[in-house]
Amino acid sequence: MKDIKRFITPLFALIGIQLLWVVVVVFWIAWFMKSHSRLRAVAETYSPELLQGGTDWFILVEGILLLCAILAGVYVIFLYWRRQAELYRAQRNFIAQVTHELKSPLASLQLHLETIRRRRLSPEKLSTFLDTMLGDTDRLDTLINNLLSAQRLDQKGIKLNLVRDNLSERVTDYFRPRQFSLPKAGTMHLDIEPDLYADLDSEALETIFRNLLENAILYASGSPVVEVALKSQGRKAHLTFTDHGKGVPRNEQKKVFRMFYRVKHPGETIRGSGLGLFIVQALTRMHRGKVWLTSEGVGKGASIHLLLPLRKPPTGEDA
């Protein structure tokens, strides 16, 4: 019974419907050709004028078009089902992944707190424990914020407060303090063109930066190496966020912005929720911008590109 259920899938159902459709079309044409002479005899007896317009052949074409419309409808339903099935599988994997992402820092916090309660630690050891615990709370805070942001974005519940601001300063202010605090002694290089202005929502922009940086750290091969560049490109500001990590296969580079989608690398389990780049894309579009990913392939790193409309610096009266 299980083997039978395994073969009864919408894909096989679609193939079966297509074969049935071919049989029906062949039967329809055969029946029409067989009955054509009788139809003409009926038309000559009751309505000879119909023969002048080729109405009999119109009936054949009309029937075939109707069958084509039915097949097209079935195909559309199949495409919709396949998309829903992919989303369902992604959501199911997402729930499992998020459960793990929540349990890991909570377990770490519990372990460190119990150790602090049961043992008298040296100031150096206590400081190390506190740093680890703060890192775990930051990890939880990021995950919860991403969950809330994704839910609000999916339901179009976020409205940005766009204000003319210095994009160059915002990029520098966010990444400069983190430049020398990457895990595993990672490095970050900044190349920022000064005084580029855009209409920005500071909170949303920080969310974009946070997710880009976290994504680069998650998919780093060993010590993270990150390059952040901001340049003017005509009437646009072009922000490029490059890592030298695991890379993205060409056939997956457009999929990474889907909700819950995570790039899988054989033999590796990479933590994450699959929401980061979805949030980045949604918030960038709300800034009237564009985002895309480029990568030469697996093991060759990846670059996230953001294009935002440039604006003139505010005048003294605007400021």
Rank of each mutant, 00 (worst) to 15 (best):
K5A: 13
F7E: 06
I8K: 04
T9K: 12
L11V: 12
F12D: 00
A13P: 04
I15C: 10
G16M: 00
Q18A: 14
L20F: 06
L20S: 09
W21T: 10
V22S: 12
V25D: 04
F32R: 06
K34T: 13
S37V: 08
L39Y: 08
V42Q: 03
E44K: 01
T45K: 13
Y46H: 11
S47T: 14
G54K: 04
D56P: 01
W57I: 08
L60T: 03
E62H: 10
E62T: 12
G63W: 00
I70A: 09
Y80I: 14
W81Y: 12
W81S: 04
Q84R: 15
Q84E: 13
L87R: 13
Y88P: 01
Q97D: 14
K103W: 03
S104G: 01
P105T: 05
A107G: 11
L113A: 05
E114C: 01
R118V: 05
L121H: 10
P123N: 01
L126Q: 01
T128I: 11
D131P: 00
L134R: 15
L134I: 14
L134T: 14
G135Q: 04
T137F: 11
R139S: 14
T142H: 13
L143N: 08
L143F: 13
I144P: 07
S149Q: 09
Q151H: 13
L153D: 07
L153V: 06
D154Y: 10
Q155V: 08
G157H: 07
N161T: 06
N161R: 10
V163H: 08
V163P: 03
D165Q: 15
E169I: 00
R170Q: 15
R170E: 14
R170S: 07
V171Y: 04
P177A: 11
P177Q: 13
R178Y: 03
F180T: 13
S181H: 13
P183N: 00
K184E: 12
T187D: 13
D191G: 04
D191L: 00
E193C: 02
L196C: 09
D199Q: 12
D199G: 08
D199E: 09
L200W: 04
D201Q: 02
D201Y: 06
S202F: 02
A204Q: 03
A204V: 02
L205C: 01
L205N: 07
E206Q: 12
E206D: 12
E206P: 00
T207I: 01
I208A: 03
N211V: 09
L212P: 02
N215I: 05
A216P: 07
V228A: 02
A229V: 05
L230R: 05
L230Q: 06
K231M: 08
R235W: 06
D243N: 15
G245L: 05
G247A: 04
G247L: 05
G247E: 05
V248C: 15
N251I: 01
E252A: 10
Q253Y: 10
K254H: 14
K255R: 14
Y261S: 03
V263I: 15
V263W: 11
K264R: 14
G267D: 03
G267K: 03
E268Y: 09
R271D: 11
S273I: 07
G274N: 08
G276D: 06
G276Q: 06
L277P: 02
L277W: 00
L283K: 13
H287F: 08
R288L: 12
K290A: 09
T294C: 07
G301V: 03
G301A: 09
A302W: 02
S303E: 04
I304M: 01
H305K: 02
L308M: 06
T315H: 06
G316R: 15
G316N: 10
E317G: 06
D318Q: 15
